[in-house]
Design a protein around this nucleic acid. Structure first.
Length: 568
DNA sequence: GCCGTTTTCGGCCCGACTGTTTTCAGTCG
């Protein structure tokens, strides 16, 4: 028995109870119990007091005892026997929750999406008390689009949506100010929808203009306080717009940035002090409403420092505010250690990349073009990289405000050898090693390849360690804990690749790496000047893992970088 | 179902919108 199984059992129980239309506090209690275990850093064997945890009581405790003693839960078994499995997808239909599903099941025996579709078409649903013609029609059309809706969209895809919507919003003069909120603002890897806060005194006008100009699949809700639509872009994506007055903005942006758990925790905190948080402000005990000029002031009202959106996750961040000051911030970044030029598959010359990095105020940078194995990327042969070294050394003499290091992004070959020999590697200042081929090899082989790179004394960093593309491919599935252990053992840097397609390593692995004392570099892997801006996304993503400034190599001053990395 | 320096019952975060109702329940974020 392990913790994950217990957590999943609680979640299943909650799901089944929801389908039965159970009291939602009861459902929430099981979800909360799952959450309590999730948040506890200890493994099951390290927890001798699991039944005494806050949030675990008689009912949830009995489930744990069952699982520990006989590997299964009587309660879950009973629920699985009573609740038809076909009901579960019904919860995905917008507008349909536990209560309504329970009612439909009771009244006309609905037990699956298929039977609901049939009942709607036969007009049986509208005969059930509390259901009308409109509900029936809506359900039917929701069932039709159920399969086509993707659900989650990666951050890089959302970025395009956000940019598009922002352009439209700027064209509406009645909008005084706006900001994206929600999971996108928190730099979540994936989002299911996109939220905007709009400051306006004329919500109805703005609403009508948005309805007229945005490409729409459907309008979900349209009131004076909010507009919910499904946008007709490359994919159908839901968007929420909230209309507020200028003085409500700070509270609204906080509220709609979430996360849900962060908000719950903030509200509990407020409540314990006799205050009440809503999206419009903070209500004091005497009923007066306080508003704020900024989110900073909002947090200050509760004696808290500004909590960056990226770290607003499960609520535990509120107990960790003392650590915030030490977290990596974009202002701390002094360099980018991974980028490409026209020498391989980049779009700009070395000089152009240097100028761009100078414009960012970096004090050092590394040019890391691909190596010969990667023919599609015009990878450098030993001869060409030696020429490149000469060019970089000479260019470096022209600048006294930035140090340009000679590096490489060397391929780790499928046969677990490296693309350059040690003699050549020793001529470089910084060596990045990475896998770009044969992703489908066994984990054993993949790890052998990574081990070769790790053991090589000239290699400084492993780039995009898992090879994943968010929402598109899993990568080559390395044993990351083992990789972290090697990084510690051989003193190698692991990368947080800031390209929004990659975000690799992922949050949980970054946490693990930092705990193990492994250094991280946040790099853009830029193939063009604009992509150097990925650094912001990368840093925000790193905050999710509570990466400290000193953990992140490219926040180090130049002399420390030379001392500990280049001359190592 | 869980919790309690307001402690064994009554509340649990809060508000908008919709569709069904004639004052509100359900759903959603």
């Amino acid at each position: 028995m392990n913790k994950k199984t217990i957590i999943r059992t609680f979640e299943k129980i909650a799901l089944y109870m929801e389908l039965l239309g159970e009291n939602h506090f009861k459902v929430a209690a099981f979800r909360k119990a799952a959450n309590v275990l999730e948040l506890d850093p200890r493994s099951l064997s390290e927890m001798d007091d699991i039944l005494k945890l806050k949030g675990i009581g008689k009912g949830t405790g009995a489930v744990i005892t069952d699982l520990l003693e006989k590997e299964e839960s009587d309660l879950l078994k009973e629920l699985e026997e009573t609740v038809p499995k076909g009901l579960i997808p019904l919860l995905k239909i917008p507008g349909l929750g536990g209560k309504k599903i329970a009612k439909l099941r009771e009244a006309i025996g609905i037990d699956s999406v298929e039977s609901l579709r049939a009942a709607c078409m036969a007009g049986e649903v509208s005969k059930v008390a509390g259901f009308g013609k409109k509900t029936e029609e809506n359900m039917l059309s929701e069932i039709e689009i159920l399969g086509t809706c993707q659900g989650k969209f990666p951050h890089w895809q959302m970025e395009k949506v956000v940019t598009f919507v922002e352009q439209e919003l700027r064209l509406i003069p009645e909008i005084k100010h706006f900001s994206v909120a929600g999971s996108y603002r928190r730099t979540e890897e994936e989002s299911s929808d996109v939220d905007f806060i709009i400051v306006t005194d004329e919500p109805a006008t703005v609403r009508e203009k948005l309805l007229a100009t945005l490409p729409l699949v459907a309008t979900i809700a349209a009131g004076d306080a909010k507009l919910s639509v499904t946008l007709d872009l490359e994919e159908a994506i839901d968007a929420d717009f909230r209309f507020v007055k200028a003085d409500q903005f700070a509270s609204a942006i906080h509220h709609f940035t979430g996360s849900k758990d962060h908000n719950v925790k903030m509200r509990q905190l407020a409540k314990s002090r006799g205050m009440k948080i809503s999206e419009y402000g903070v209500e004091n005990e005497d009923g007066s409403i306080e508003t704020f000029d900024s989110e900073e002031q909002f947090f200050a009202h509760f004696g808290l420092p500004f909590i960056p959106p990226a770290v607003r996750r499960n609520g535990s961040e509120i107990d960790r505010v003392d650590e915030l000051a030490g977290l990596v911030a974009i202002e701390d970044i002094r360099s980018d250690l991974h980028m490409h030029t026209t020498w391989s598959d980049g779009a700009y010359s070395i000089r152009e990349m240097v100028e761009a990095c100078r414009a960012k105020g970096y004090s050092y940078m590394v040019i890391t073009d691909h190596t010969q194995y990667l023919k599609v990327a015009n990878g450098l042969t030993p001869e060409r990289i030696r020429e490149q070294i000469v060019e970089i050394r000479s260019l470096n003499k022209e600048y006294d405000d930035i140090e340009i290091f000679c590096g490489t992004e060397m391929d780790i070959l499928p046969d677990a050898t490296l693309d350059f020999d040690d003699e050549l590697l020793s001529e470089l200042d910084f060596v990045v090693a990475s896998i770009h081929s044969n992703f489908s090899q066994s984990q054993e082989l993949i790890m052998e390849r990574l081990h070769t790179a790790m053991k090589n004394p000239h290699v400084d960093m492993i780039a995009h360690p898992t090879g994943r593309i968010v929402g598109q491919r899993e990568g080559y599935n390395p044993d990351v804990p083992q990789l972290i252990q090697w990084a510690k053992e051989y003193g190698k840097i692991l990368e947080l690749n800031a390209n929004p397609y990659r975000l690799d390593l992922a949050t949980d692995h970054l946490i693990m790496a930092q705990e193990a004392g492994v250094t991280i570099a946040i790099n853009t892997d830029a193939h063009a000047i604009e992509q150097l801006n990925y650094m912001t996304t990368g840093v925000n993503y790193g905050k999710k893992a509570w990466l400290k400034k000193e953990t992140v190599v490219n926040t180090w001053p130049l002399d420390k970088f030379i001392r500990e990395i280049v001359r190592k």
